[in-house]
């Protein structure tokens, strides 16, 4: 299996997961390369992205699996060949062969930036940190059957709160990436629920790294 590591930032964070998948085969075609097709009733170029990224979240650790039709193309040349053809904000960082299965991917590190238009005190910062040390953190989660309460604590490895500016805090979080996965926006949901007076005016998430179950970087 061929794999790409790419980043999605800036204007590209609003491109949906499905649109991103649809885009890749076209990028290869622009570069004069071809992605292998699926078999079956309606064959199409097959690509697969690990861990769908929600609209509005940026990332510098996205993984895309594919198989190149051409077998004489050194994979390390792909970033330079593909990068001129992306929309603003998407860039391939590396390309390689991998036999590691995506299901071995276990943890995700991400930064959630909390923005407070009226500023945020050091006390507030401490209270938020204390919140994530509780034994149980219940948040409301949308499920097929409507709203349900879930305890997100078991899906959180660690959350460190640091100050970026007088009005911005960063939650450096290490959370479960899949089975079950935790949407980093739920960390904000927890603050809104337990510390409503510290609910931010805006929050955005950025994925920084993915790990396997022994906390080694997953590629």
């Amino acid at each position: 299996m061929n794999r790409l590591l790419f980043e999605k930032t800036g204007k590209a964070i609003y491109i949906s997961h499905l649109d991103t998948m649809a885009m890749f085969p076209r990028i290869f075609l622009r570069a004069g390369l071809h992605v292998k097709f699926t078999r079956g009733m309606s064959p199409h170029a097959y690509v697969s992205i690990a861990l769908p990224l929600s609209v509005g979240t940026s990332s510098c650790c996205e993984l895309l699996d594919f198989t190149l039709e051409e077998d004489n193309v050194p994979l390390e040349t792909l970033p330079a060949r593909l990068n001129p053809y992306f929309p603003a904000g998407i860039r391939v960082l590396s390309a390689y062969d991998s036999d590691r299965k995506i299901k071995e991917l276990r943890y995700l590190r991400c930064t959630v930036t909390l923005e407070y238009d009226q500023g945020i005190s050091d006390d507030g910062c401490r209270d938020i940190e204390a919140l994530f040390r509780q034994d149980q953190i219940l948040v409301e989660k949308k499920t097929k059957k409507g709203l349900a309460e879930t305890d997100i604590r078991p899906m959180i490895e660690s959350v460190h709160v640091s100050r970026i500016s007088s009005g911005e805090l960063a939650l450096e979080s290490l959370i479960c990436a899949q089975n079950p996965s935790l949407n980093p926006q739920l960390l904000v949901g927890a603050i809104e629920r337990y510390l409503p007076e510290l609910a931010p005016d805006f929050a955005k998430a950025h994925r920084t790294e993915v790990f396997d179950e022994s906390f080694q970087v997953f590629r």
Partner: peptide, 9 residues
């Protein structure tokens, strides 16, 4: 939202 951002190829 992608229809409001520009930035396309």
């Amino acid at each position: 939202p992608a229809r409001y951002t520009g930035g396309e190829y």
